[in-house]
Lab assay of single mutants.
Amino acid sequence: MLDDRARMEAAKKEKVEQILAEFQLQEEDLKKVMRRMQKEMDRGLRLETHEEASVKMLPTYVRSTPEGSEVGDFLSLDLGGTNFRVMLVKVGEGEEGQWSVKTKHQMYSIPEDAMTGTAEMLFDYISECISDFLDKHQMKHKKLPLGFTFSFPVRHEDIDKGILLNWTKGFKASGAEGNNVVGLLRDAIKRRGDFEMDVVAMVNDTVATMISCYYEDHQCEVGMIVGTGCNACYMEEMQNVELVEGDEGRMCVNTEWGAFGDSGELDEFLLEYDRLVDESSANPGQQLYEKLIGGKYMGELVRLVLLRLVDENLLFHGEASEQLRTRGAFETRFVSQVESDTGDRKQIYNILSTLGLRPSTTDCDIVRRACESVSTRAAHMCSAGLAGVINRMRESRSEDVMRITVGVDGSVYKLHPSFKERFHASVRRLTPSCEITFIESEEGSGRGAALVSAVACKKACMLGQ
């Protein structure tokens, strides 16, 4: 009897593995994704193909990295998701002549009506938060230079001027797309009239992360975010950046690689679950690469896999709870928690219980395998993109072996128990001629924006502006 049951459990697990095998990517698959990513990057950089390229390769006008001589107080704003952060950054000489960066910050959550109302409502709310922060720190009387981390696709015309191309991540505030974001912020500050600010720089969160990590390690020339969304930036040779005049030196390019796949480059790798996630998203047909990796989508992918296993009578005796059938019910943090389970399955059992399920031991094991399959594919897909960037940098610099540091931020990278190990191992397999160091950014977005502002202020002083 026991043997029969054991055989049935083994057969069930084997069927589960057959279904989950769809998520496995072979090294040849990853090399294919990497080569296609490089081709799209090239198209994004070139003037004649930029418009139709899915990977936009947006110039950021960040050319210099901090040298350690900029000092002063800077205000930093960070808008990239449902939370908005205001930070005071003091850049100065530390002990023994070292450079020191001290920060104080406060988080504000953005109400739904500000995210989806008008641009005026959104930026009025942001300036209200700045006003509140300055009151708390008794700094209303000071006109501070301000660095703005704005983590949406922007076409820069200068370091302090950028046109919002399109909202992502659930934002829909009308009247912002096609307009200068810094102008919208300046107008809102003017409307309030109770404080003055000098907006000197606007950067993407990947750029802010790279600059913040450069402060720790001067070989950091790539910034990457794996959180709600997924994106990367890197220092490109100016001669390859056709959208900006000049051939000397390097400029940081914001790849906006989340949109890779929007022209069909990933079609052969998309599964039924991916198509369902895409169809029910706020932007169907867009940001397809990001939807395979980002935390906004990972939990939902797992939920759809679990429903398939229920329908195949391989999980929960073929019956799903009402909660499990509800879109968004299986949160991405559950994926991390399930994979963090120590082996007694308590954590998995508790999560499934909150979803109205009474799982068996085998159910718990199957749910864990589903989570591992989805998150491992995410790590491997992400590795193909980064390997594409790094191999490109090595080739354009004609280096036999390139040493490089990548600064990384984002909740999936930082909080998932195995993502970074799987990701690092896969990147290294795909970049055999590179020695890569990964560092995690601390308060990256805010500190990085302030350091970019410090560079901009120093330049302005040198130019006598």
Rank of each mutant, 00 (worst) to 15 (best):
L2N: 03
D3M: 03
R7A: 10
K15N: 11
E17W: 04
E17S: 14
I19W: 15
L20Q: 00
E22Q: 02
F23Q: 00
Q26C: 15
E27Q: 05
E28R: 05
D29E: 03
V33S: 01
M34S: 08
M37A: 05
M37D: 00
Q38I: 12
Q38H: 14
K39G: 06
R43K: 15
R43Y: 03
G44M: 01
L45D: 00
L45N: 02
L47T: 10
E48H: 05
T49L: 09
E51C: 15
E51N: 02
E52M: 10
A53H: 02
A53Y: 01
M57W: 01
R63A: 14
P66T: 08
G68S: 09
S69K: 07
G72A: 02
D73H: 03
S76D: 05
L77G: 11
L77M: 08
T82W: 08
F84L: 13
L88A: 08
V89F: 07
V89N: 07
V89E: 01
K90P: 03
K90V: 10
V91N: 06
V91Q: 07
V91P: 03
G92I: 10
E93P: 15
E93A: 08
E96H: 10
G97A: 08
G97Y: 05
S100V: 14
V101A: 04
K102S: 05
K102F: 13
T103G: 06
H105G: 06
M107W: 09
M107H: 09
D113R: 15
D113N: 14
A114P: 04
M115S: 13
G117V: 02
T118A: 08
A119V: 08
M121K: 05
L122W: 07
L122P: 03
F123Y: 09
F123P: 01
F123V: 10
Y125V: 10
Y125S: 09
I126N: 01
S127V: 09
S127H: 02
S127K: 15
S127P: 00
C129G: 08
I130Q: 02
S131G: 13
D135P: 00
H137A: 09
M139Q: 07
M139N: 04
L144I: 07
L146N: 15
L146S: 07
F148Y: 01
F148E: 01
V154I: 10
R155G: 08
H156D: 12
E157R: 11
I159D: 15
I159R: 15
K161P: 04
N166F: 12
K169I: 07
K172S: 14
E177R: 06
G178M: 10
N179L: 14
N179Q: 13
N180G: 10
V181D: 12
L185P: 00
L185G: 01
D187P: 00
A188L: 02
G193R: 08
G193E: 13
D194C: 13
D194Y: 04
D198A: 07
D198F: 04
V199G: 09
V200Y: 13
V200N: 05
M202Y: 13
V203M: 02
T206N: 03
M210V: 02
C213Y: 08
Y215V: 11
Y215P: 11
D217E: 07
D217N: 14
H218V: 05
H218L: 03
Q219P: 07
G223N: 01
C230E: 01
Y234N: 02
Y234H: 10
M235A: 01
E236R: 01
E237R: 11
E237N: 11
E237A: 06
M238K: 03
Q239C: 13
N240Y: 02
L243R: 01
V244W: 07
V244H: 05
G246E: 02
D247S: 07
N254S: 11
N254G: 11
N254Q: 10
W257M: 08
G258F: 03
A259V: 07
A259I: 06
F260H: 02
G261T: 00
G261D: 01
D262F: 12
D262I: 13
L271R: 03
E272Q: 02
Y273Q: 03
D274G: 01
L276Q: 06
E279T: 09
S280C: 11
G285V: 00
Q286A: 13
L288G: 13
Y289A: 02
K291A: 00
L292H: 12
I293P: 00
Y297T: 07
M298F: 10
E300D: 08
E300N: 00
L301M: 14
L304M: 12
L306K: 02
L307Q: 05
L309I: 04
E312Q: 15
L314T: 10
L314I: 06
F316E: 03
H317A: 13
H317R: 08
G318E: 11
A320P: 15
S321Y: 04
E322T: 10
Q323M: 10
R325E: 13
T326Y: 03
T326G: 14
T326Q: 14
T326L: 11
T326N: 02
F330T: 00
E331L: 14
R333G: 09
R333L: 07
R333S: 09
S336R: 08
V338I: 07
E339G: 04
E339F: 04
E339V: 05
E339K: 00
K346A: 05
Q347K: 12
I348E: 05
Y349A: 09
I351S: 08
L352F: 09
T354Q: 14
L355Y: 05
G356S: 07
L357G: 03
R358E: 15
S360Q: 07
T362L: 07
D363V: 03
D363M: 02
C364V: 14
I366W: 13
R369E: 11
E372H: 02
E372F: 13
V374G: 01
A379Y: 01
M381A: 06
C382N: 08
A384K: 00
A384W: 00
I390T: 02
N391Q: 07
N391I: 07
R392I: 03
M393V: 13
R394G: 09
E399G: 08
M402K: 13
R403Q: 15
T405W: 08
T405L: 03
G407D: 03
V408K: 00
Y413E: 02
L415F: 06
H416F: 15
P417E: 12
P417R: 07
K420E: 02
E421Y: 12
E421I: 14
F423G: 00
A425H: 05
P432T: 12
P432V: 07
P432S: 09
C434E: 00
I439N: 03
I439F: 07
I439M: 13
I439W: 07
S445I: 15
S445D: 11
G446F: 14
L451W: 11
V452E: 03
S453K: 15
A456Q: 10
C461Q: 09
C461K: 14
C461N: 06
L463N: 08
